[in-house]
Design a protein around this nucleic acid. Sequence first.
DNA 1: ACATTTAATTTGACAGGCAAACTAAAAAGC
DNA 2: GCTTTTTAGTTTGCCTGTCAAATTAAATGT
Lengths: 420, 420
Amino acid sequence: MTKMESGRPAGNFGPLMGEAPEDARPLKQRIFDLVRASGPVSRAQVAKELRISRGTVSVLTADLIEARLLCEDQTLPASAEMTRGRPPVGLSVRADAFVVAGIKLSSGNRTGLLIDSAGNRLASYRMPVTTRDRSTDSEIDATGMIVDTMLADQGLSRCDLAAVGLGLPGFVNNETGSVHWSPLFTQGDPQFARRASDRLGLPVAIDNDANLVALAELWFGKGRRTADFVVVTLEEGVGMGTVLNHRLFRGANNLGGELGHLKVALDGALCRCGQRGCLEAYLSDYAIVREGATALPHGIDRSAPRAQRIEALQQAAAQGNAAAQSIFNRAQRYLAFGVANVVNLMDPSLVILSGGQMRYDWLDPEVLRRDMREFVIGTDRDLPQLKVHEWGDLLWAHGAAALALEAVTEARLGPAAVTA
Amino acid sequence: MTKMESGRPAGNFGPLMGEAPEDARPLKQRIFDLVRASGPVSRAQVAKELRISRGTVSVLTADLIEARLLCEDQTLPASAEMTRGRPPVGLSVRADAFVVAGIKLSSGNRTGLLIDSAGNRLASYRMPVTTRDRSTDSEIDATGMIVDTMLADQGLSRCDLAAVGLGLPGFVNNETGSVHWSPLFTQGDPQFARRASDRLGLPVAIDNDANLVALAELWFGKGRRTADFVVVTLEEGVGMGTVLNHRLFRGANNLGGELGHLKVALDGALCRCGQRGCLEAYLSDYAIVREGATALPHGIDRSAPRAQRIEALQQAAAQGNAAAQSIFNRAQRYLAFGVANVVNLMDPSLVILSGGQMRYDWLDPEVLRRDMREFVIGTDRDLPQLKVHEWGDLLWAHGAAALALEAVTEARLGPAAVTA
DNA sequence: ACATTTAATTTGACAGGCAAACTAAAAAGC
DNA sequence: GCTTTTTAGTTTGCCTGTCAAATTAAATGT
């Protein structure tokens, strides 16, 4: 035994957390969220679920009903066990409480979605981008146009809209509403959300598009029941959204995880970011097309659009062209490698591969799973669940709508609303 | 514009969070934490810092003083600006409020630390492990012996001890107190913490040893002022602890990030876990020794202990042996690669390389930084801060002590304590 | 001596939440 | 049919945490 000096003078210790707002969401908001999430529920169920007294539920739901956010609803899901006692009264979210829009901007398309507070899809919109001057204002105006079109479709006007969620590619800070950098604009705007809000006359919440997909899965998709999961998106590049404890995790600096630029090889393939060995440099459209030119030097029209060239490559692979096959095999293997590393570091219980329909044609979930087992450290635990979720264009817009929904309930029921 | 179907029947949506305890820490606890963290503070400062009314602070501090946790303290840090007005009264944590112990168990050593509630080190302990039967009970008894020894040194007995924090290698679940697997035991124990607590007659909190280092940095080290950071430990293996928003992040399944088994190469070096390309297979003692045998086939006694062989290898490298140098260069480069990937995914604002003193001899922070810049995707942001923090054996025990401190304040001031 | 300034306490009010008593509405037993 | 049982929902009174504002305390100007 080595004895050491003792009686060192006391210093300060313990974590020093500057300003920790750390407000628990008010009960009223949590009740609303629960009702929205779990369809018609009785007050008694709400009380049990939230572990609060039934009296409290009564009072708060009365408020929510008076605020025209909830309504009573006789059609309770016929509970399997016909019990005795007073029949419960179902609570549902009122469809006519408010309306929100979700807009996804990208370099090729603009997509929009209009939903009401009960989640009914009222209208949707999709249009290829024709002209672009890469200014923030023109993009905001385009957004306004989409919103107006969808509203007009329903005989509504801007003042009927409660909020707009806006997703765009690039480095976007949801909290501050700033756009550090986006391929859509010639330069960033530290006040983008505010500017959009002013120009449209509506509350606007913005976020990175990869986060949007995670939000879409969290609100509408396979992640609803899962506390922690990771969404991997394959679009032009490779993106990632992370949900921890039922909340979108946006990283320390509000820049999401850059899965696309996770390094999977020392001195590997060149990426358009200028570095080498990025996952994206093996998986993304441009990477596949790049190698495709070598595999089928004469088979493909070099001036054809990417999607077409990829399709030709896939056909070649299906017909047994070994060079073409090896491109997709390698892409798949590196995807497994990258995702496995995410699992090794974050340990999520679910991984969702989500995104455009045509992206995953070359992806075989079984092979992916096998490869991942090779890379994921697993003493006794199982691999996390692995789901491929193909979803249409509106996926992104759904995420944007979720962003808007969050903003609305936050504004009406959140901690700040209590004060006012 | 493509119009899509509308009026889909409403379904449920929104995140479905089962039981979300999500209690904000009570104000009383936050005041206590702030006083502990920031030395003698006046009530007015507390109120300003926590953004609560001064009246509330008065009432709550009165409680804390009566509970003998805080005391008034005339020695306020002579504030630079001699102001007018009534002089503030400093608040400090009472040193005699309670005593906790932190114990770190590893295969080679057992380390212990006894501190009082004000952070004074009362005693410490360190002893190499001689006999081991790899049963949980014998390890618990060894812990009890260390605790008793340290207490006796201060003329105290077990009933004077408020809690024990216990760190061990392996897969340890802090929340449930279970040990899935540990190199110390022949088999895991799903009730390890409870068993230890019963056997010692003291509250026991357990955690993985890599998390301990993160806790130590969060409570006593360079992470105190940083909300989000990552700690990388080089010991026998490679470990990682993650702090998000001033809290230890333990992953979805309470298994920390397995940085040691992050894959840094496809079909890379063989790791003792059986997989290939793990970071550990390039960095850890055994990996370096393994290659060292090739670099200096005759120069080193193969039966010598690892530390000695590594030292010989370092000397050879310093004297210009190219083969030896390349081993360390590669290790360093892969370390940069792995840490860069952590940064790419998690985006922490600070990375601390922390641990035993001798581990980092071959590590040049400048080179590491340069390599990382090559691997970290950086559009406009800077590299996170990178600090090397060599710390003695007691580092781990400090983390364990922090674990115990947390347990004590949680029990006395936490949300659960309010009910009782 | 008296105004000024800052710190700390006391006071009154109020909101959020709970427990328990109470009312409501059904099925089951007699 | 009447009572009992069972479950759902409401009302009531109370407790606790918190704040704003008034008050007291202790120092430094003038």
